[in-house]
Amino acid sequence: MSEYVDEFPALVESLFQVPDLGKLGISQASHPPRFLMLYGSLRERSYSHLLTLEAARLLRAMGGEVKVFDPTGLPLVDSVPDSHAKVQELRELAMWAEGMVWTSPERHGAMTGLLKTQIDWIPLSEGAVRPTQGKTLAVMQVCGGSQSFNAVNQMRILGRWMRMITIPNQSSVAKAFTEFEEDGRMKPSAFYDRVVDVMEELYKFTLLTRNVSSYLTDRYSERKESAEALSKRVNQRSI
C-alpha cells in the first residue's frame, strides 16, 4: 500500500486493509445453523404463514435449527417501551439467529405493515452488538393474484439497510390460495421447487459466512471512527 499512498491523500494508510482470502477459512461450528422466520399476516389461514412453515420444514430437514416468531400481540413501533415482552422476544431471537427468512403477502403493491413492524423493532445496533449485520437473509412473498415482486423487492432494500447478506434467489408464489392443500401443506409445483431452491441457497450461504461475517462486514470507515474515538479518549486523559 505504501507505494500508492500518494494516490490516496484522503486515506489513512494504517487503517486500509487489502482483502485476505486466508481469513476466510471455513470451519465447522459447534452447532447447527440457526434461522429466524418472520411472516406478515395474522389471518387464520395465512398463506405467508403456511409458506413460512413449509420453508421451516425444509431448513430443519437440511439440519438447521429454526424458530418461527409469532407476531401476535407485537405492538406498533414506539408505541410501547423496548422492554415490552414481545419486543424482547423478537430481539433475542434476532440476536440468536445466524440467518433469517422474511415472508410477506403483497398488499396494495407492498409488504404488509405487520412484517415491516417486526423489522422496525430490530435495532441496527444494541450496545456493541449488531443483531442483523453480516447475517444471511432470504425473502419470499405470496400473491393473491398473478405473480409480482413488489414485496420481495422492498424486503431486499430493507435487508441491505439492515446490513444483511441477502441471497440472490427469492420466491414469489402467485395465486397462493391455489397452492396449498387443506391441511396447510404446499402442493407439488414449480413454486414449491423454487422454495426448495431458496432454502438450499440460504443454508449454503449461511454455512459459508456465519463464522466469518465479522470479517466480511469489517469496514474502513468504522475502523477510522473507532481509531479517532480512541485517540480522543487518550488525549482527554493526558490533559
Rank of each mutant, 00 (worst) to 15 (best):
M162W: 03
E3G: 06
V195K: 05
L207R: 07
H84L: 12
Y39W: 13
E89A: 09
I167G: 05
L50W: 14
E182T: 11
M155F: 00
G144A: 05
S189G: 08
D70W: 01
S2C: 13
V212L: 01
Q141W: 00
P81L: 09
E3I: 13
V198C: 07
P9R: 06
S46A: 13
K175H: 03
Y215S: 05
Q147L: 10
P19T: 03
W102E: 04
E92R: 08
T72S: 15
S46F: 03
A61M: 11
A55P: 02
D78S: 09
E7T: 14
W161H: 12
I239P: 05
S125A: 02
R160Y: 04
E201F: 12
L15H: 03
Y192Q: 11
Q147P: 08
S214D: 14
R107D: 08
Q170I: 05
E228F: 07
S148V: 02
A85K: 08
L230P: 13
E54D: 06
S231L: 12
S104G: 05
G109C: 14
S189H: 09
G145Q: 09
E225R: 15
P105W: 01
V5L: 15
E228H: 05
H49V: 10
Q28F: 04
G159T: 01
K67E: 07
V196F: 11
S83Q: 12
Q133D: 07
V173S: 12
E225V: 09
G64W: 08
V196E: 13
S104Y: 00
L207D: 03
V142Y: 03
L76R: 15
S41F: 06
D78E: 09
S14G: 05
P75M: 06
V173F: 14
A227K: 01
L216R: 01
K86N: 05
R34H: 06
L59R: 15
L38D: 00
T166R: 01
T136C: 05
G73P: 11
K224Y: 07
Q154T: 00
V80Y: 09
N235E: 14
R237L: 11
R160F: 04
L42A: 06
R219P: 01
G22R: 02
G64P: 15
P19F: 02
D70V: 04
Q154D: 00
V77D: 11
S14F: 02
Q133K: 13
D20A: 10
H108K: 08
E181F: 13
S231A: 14
M164D: 01
M162E: 04
M100Q: 10
L76A: 11
G109P: 08
L115Y: 06
P188G: 06
V195F: 08
F16N: 10
G144D: 00
S30M: 07
V12T: 06
A227W: 00
R237H: 12
S231W: 03
K23E: 05
S30H: 14
L216Q: 02
P123M: 09
P71L: 10
Q17S: 13
S146K: 14
H84V: 11
L58F: 06
E3H: 12
A151G: 00
L36T: 12
S2L: 13
Y192L: 14
